[in-house]
């Protein structure tokens, strides 16, 4: 692999906003992690270190059910969005000039979530579809797909098609060309898009609220009903645990896979 130019040299003026971004992103996270270990219930005074809230968390089975449901929905809708969205992005860049289709592919990303939520709920009841995790999964795919399409499209923006043409000239089928040439070029865009779709699904509330079966709530629905009247340290403990687990999963995944090279 060709050595990349060292990033942190020669870009001095970029360092400030770079670190500022991460400071901004992690300042509230630091607050909630600290509060999860606070014996006091109020966030404004420190009552000493305590793990009580984590203990209470273990007793809360609705949070556990919610977490499992959320992971099913997020993983499923991310997989579906990534496949459909990537195909769509390639199709839009290579196989059509229609601006209507172009705009349509981004429409879910710009639709007020409440409108999509109510539209889907009315639609599901009109076709007499029973609500469940599948109805949330489909709903999340609608907007997840739009984000994948747009991010992959941004990478295809002014596509260099010479490699693909060369591949076809050498007798490769369109399918082989797509798998062996197009996809690898798009990998960083696909990963970024999938990451977005997953992140958005994990934390989505409005659409999930309207399209879920009452017996199968996702985690944001469980949490929203609990914190509507103020966050408790128990919820902060949950957030901290989620972060810790995500960190671990990401680090392990990164070691085990070739994710690094794909980027």
């Amino acid at each position: 692999m060709a050595r990349r130019e060292p990033a942190l040299r020669g870009n001095g003026w970029l360092r400030l906003p770079f670190w500022l971004t991460y400071l901004f992103l992690y300042a509230p996270i630091a607050v909630l992690v600290v509060m999860s270990f606070n014996r006091n219930k109020t966030p404004y005074s420190w009552g000493g270190f305590s793990l009580d809230w984590y203990g209470r968390l273990a007793e809360n089975s609705s949070l556990r059910t919610g977490l499992v449901n959320t992971l099913i929905v997020a993983l499923g809708s991310t997989a579906l969005s990534t496949v459909l969205g990537t195909l769509l992005a390639v199709g839009l860049a290579r196989h059509t000039r229609s601006r209507v289709l172009d705009a349509l592919s981004t429409l879910p990303a710009i639709l007020p979530d409440l409108v999509l939520a109510i539209g889907l709920l009315v639609f599901y009841s009109a076709i007499k579809m029973t609500l469940g995790l599948h109805s949330v999964l489909v709903a999340h795919t609608v907007f997840g797909m739009a984000f994948v399409t747009a991010v992959v499209r941004a990478r295809l923006g002014h596509a260099d098609t010479s490699l693909e043409e060369a591949s076809q000239d050498l007798g490769a089928t369109p399918y082989t060309t797509f798998i062996k040439v197009t996809l690898p070029t798009l990998a960083p865009g696909i990963v970024a898009g999938a990451l977005l779709a997953f992140t958005l699904s994990l934390d989505e509330f409005v659409i999930a609220f309207f399209t879920h079966a009452p017996s199968q709530p996702t985690l944001p629905i469980v949490i929203y009903s609990m914190v509507r009247f103020g966050v408790t340290p128990e919820i902060n403990a949950l957030a901290t645990l989620l972060l810790a687990v995500s960190f671990t999963v990401v680090i392990v995944a990164q070691r085990l896979t070739k994710l690094t090279e794909a980027l």
């Binding site: 992103l25 992690y26 509230p28 996270i29 607050v31 909630l32 509060m35 992140t199 994990l202 934390d203 509330f205 985690l219 944001p220 949490i223 929203y224 914190v227 103020g230 966050v231 919820i235 902060n236 957030a239 989620l242 972060l243 995500s246 960190f247 990401v250």
Partner: peptide, 13 residues
Amino acid sequence: LPFWTNFLIRTYA
């Protein structure tokens, strides 16, 4: 990663 927690929790933070 911060967004794998929860929107309301972060807003309260």
